[in-house]
């Protein structure tokens, strides 16, 4: 893929919320921007983590970052890079907290991120229940709904999954969403358990 440069945040943000091709380019920009990954790995290593821990934190931070951009939670109060740093610092503290629940980490002051990603994180307890339900949806629907959730267009879904037309792709998305709802309704005990978390 050709090397891409984004002149400013507005261009990068537009790409991250755009088509699959634009999103891929924006993702590539993040990976090829040595500052971001190096910053995360450095912060993690400075505080006793390994390079792999740094990459894991980067991955988790990027997932939260992408979700916040996609769901309109990024308000543009800071640059995208600064904002990403804040999420990564938050993720690293969460990672450490999970690994060793010592008092100093539990009581630590969280980094100065204006809006922590906590609000749209899915807790571990919920994940376990949701994964159990997802297993009943089928691999094809899982792939399809994942792309749909990432705002891929019907044309992109058709091309990626080999459907004959955009309309067929749209019908498949509708059918899979219905299947997902059906699975949820068929397991009221899971829904009840989810309400507890």
């Amino acid at each position: 893929m050709k090397k891409v440069f984004f002149q400013n945040d507005a261009e990068l943000l537009a790409a991250l919320t755009g088509s699959e091709l634009e999103r891929r380019r924006a993702l590539q920009h993040f990976f090829e921007n040595p500052r971001l990954l190096q910053w995360v790995v450095r912060q993690v290593r400075m505080q006793g983590g390994s390079e792999q821990d740094g990459k894991d934190v980067f991955e988790e931070a990027f997932i939260v970052f992408e979700r916040q951009v996609r769901t309109g939670h990024f308000r543009g109060d800071s640059s995208l890079e600064t904002w990403f740093h804040g999420i990564a610092r938050w993720q690293w503290l969460a990672f450490r907290r999970k690994q060793r629940t010592t008092v100093d980490v539990e009581q630590a002051v969280l980094p100065s991120v204006e809006q922590t990603p906590e609000k749209i994180l899915i807790s571990e307890e919920r994940r376990v229940i949701l994964q159990r339900l997802l297993a009943q949806v089928g691999e094809r629907c899982q792939k399809l709904l994942g792309l749909f959730q990432l705002n891929h267009s019907m044309r992109e879904i058709r091309e990626l999954l080999g459907y004959s037309s955009d309309q067929v792709a749209a019908n498949e998305v509708h059918s899979c969403r219905e299947k997902l709802k059906k699975v949820i309704h068929q397991h009221p005990e899971s829904l009840e358990a989810l309400r507890a978390y």
């Binding site: 590539q28 991955e59 990027f62 997932i63 339900l133 994942g146 749909f148 990432l150 969403r177 309400r195």
Partner: peptide, 25 residues
């Protein structure tokens, strides 16, 4: 509660797709 569960399930699937892209990167 149902809508939240449905949204989170789709988010987990989106995460899987993103993770694959990140690791490929």
């Amino acid at each position: 509660a149902t809508q939240r569960a449905e949204w989170e399930m789709r988010e987990l699937l989106a995460e899987n797709a993103l993770r694959a892209q990140i690791r490929q990167g």
